[in-house]
């Protein structure tokens, strides 16, 4: 009971955190400013010009990156950036550009970058490896907000902050998969869940015996008396 009780405490504490914090806040949606509006009337080149160079493109998107319009060409899992003013292929995002992109998009205009590092071969657990290579830009602040900026597309592919990291750890404790936080069907979880379910059903029996039985019995008795009285009156 002690072991199960401890896990019930963990389930309820982690569950309480999850339901109390808004999921969009946990995703860090507030950390990034909305994209700026495009000015298409001053464009020198169009999608058609880019398509000539990339005829197999799956999509070509025009948007503003740090105040200048760019085309993002997506071809399968590969992507390339084309300057919409010069039509030139843009080189991979440098550290300085990653800083500019991060500061331009960070919600707090007074934000200060605490650390920046280049991740090529291995991703931390908070980032999907499919986004590599990326620039990891950490901002100063108690929540330690972090932007992951794709080296090829220059886009913020993932945003993380401490409330997300706490959520992630709580999720691992909630599903009892402490290593990866993915397998809800692990044996440990199933054994403890079944034991707790049996304990809870026993608790329900106790609740019935100690709290509800008198109420149920008196209600049934009242109903039976009323029904019998009604029948007697009707017969007379």
């Amino acid at each position: 009971m002690l072991f199960v009780g401890l896990q019930v405490f963990i389930w309820s504490a982690t569950g309480l955190y999850m339901v109390m914090t808004n999921i969009h806040y946990i995703h860090g949606e507030h950390l990034q400013k909305p994209s700026p509006v495009l000015n298409v009337s001053s464009l020198k080149f169009n999608h058609a010009d880019v398509l000539k160079s990339y005829p197999n493109a799956d999509s070509i998107s025009l948007f503003n990156r740090v105040g200048e319009p760019v085309f993002l060409v997506q071809e399968g899992r590969e992507s390339a950036l084309v300057n919409a003013t010069t039509k030139e292929l843009m080189p991979k995002v440098t550290e300085q550009e990653a800083r500019e992109i991060a500061l331009f998009q960070f919600h707090d205009s007074a934000g200060v970058i605490a650390n920046i590092s280049y991740l090529k071969d291995s991703a931390p657990s908070e980032l999907s490896a499919r986004h590599l290579p990326v620039w990891e830009v950490q901002f100063e602040g108690i929540a330690s907000p972090t932007f992951y900026i794709s080296e090829s597309s220059g886009q913020v592919v993932t945003k993380r902050h401490n409330p997300w990291r706490i959520f992630d750890w709580f999720w691992r404790f909630h599903i009892m998969d402490y290593l990866h936080g993915e397998d809800v069907g692990n044996v440990f979880f199933l054994v403890v869940s079944i034991t707790t379910l049996l304990s809870t059903l026993a608790g329900c029996c106790l609740v019935y015996q100690r709290v509800l039985r008198n109420f149920v019995q008196s209600s049934v008795r009242k109903f039976a008396n009323k029904w019998t009285k009604g029948r007697t009156t009707h017969v007379n």
């Binding site: 495009l38 999608h47 398509l51 070509i60 998107s61 025009l62 948007f63």
Partner: peptide, 11 residues
């Protein structure tokens, strides 16, 4: 397109 933030060519 006034007010647009992104314009994509898609199929």
């Amino acid at each position: 397109l006034s007010g647009a933030k992104r314009v994509s060519l898609v199929w």
